[in-house]
Design a protein around this nucleic acid. Structure first.
Lengths: 123, 123
DNA sequence: ATAGATGCAAAGGGTTTGCACTTGA
DNA sequence: TCAAGTGCAAACCCTTTGCATCTAT
């Protein structure tokens, strides 16, 4: 992926405007407002290319298909609202979890997902 | 699912012997050592039934199809080996993660997954 | 005897790929 | 110009479902 196309521009725009992790279906829907007739295959291929070039980062939550967010935000975790299903970034980390690692195992990284209600849904 | 069958017995046996979360493919493979010709559809149907009756609990890790483990083990987390892809139970928990929760959000539960190498793969 | 359970094969749903057409440089 | 990029449709992979057969009770 080297050329600049309407489709690629639209897809990047969609992620920048969203400011939260998006799935391929959401990208297709939003992208079609910029490029009529945008195809799902192009969305998948462009996402794969943007992940490859590290412009996007995959966001994988348990039991859900992958979402993607703009890369370069450093180590962080996510909070998923059980009411509206939106995913938010959490700027904080429980820190080293070495003390949970079984003897003889080697810890390399961790994932933490919080669940509950977001501000909008707590009311 | 009410009747006792060779297939159902074999599948429960497989989970009890494994002592770790298994996916449908692993269950099929191991189950065929007890019941020749065991079908994948039976595995899926039996797992669904055992989850329904709360004998099994789904284990969902980020970006992977669900595994299942014998229920009733209380709150715990998992460690996934990046080498052999097996998943192990961790008996421990970082504790309350309230301090990571954004203001105005309500925390209900959390998931933690550790990644690295298991004892067998560290060597 | 008979309703539940099984195995096969076909159907689904989301993702990937092949291919001819379009388009950016 | 002409290879990269796109859209369509078919292929894929894993999971679910329909249906005839088998079997536990």
């Amino acid at each position: 992926m080297e050329r600049r196309t309407r489709q690629r521009d639209a897809i990047r725009r969609v992620f920048e405007d969203a400011g939260r992790p998006l799935g391929p279906g959401e990208v297709l829907e939003a992208g079609r407002e910029h490029v009529e007739g945008l195809g799902i295959a192009t969305v998948y291929r462009t996402i794969a290319s943007l992940v490859e070039s590290e412009w996007l980062t995959p966001v994988e939550l348990p039991g859900e298909p992958p979402r993607y967010e703009v890369a370069g935000q450093g180590h962080h975790h996510h909070f998923r609202c059980r009411q509206c299903a939106r995913v938010f970034e959490i700027h904080g980390c429980p820190g080293s979890l070495e003390h949970l690692t079984p003897p003889g195992f080697s810890l390399e990284r961790h994932e933490v997902t919080l669940y509950g209600l977001c501000t909008a849904c707590v009311g």
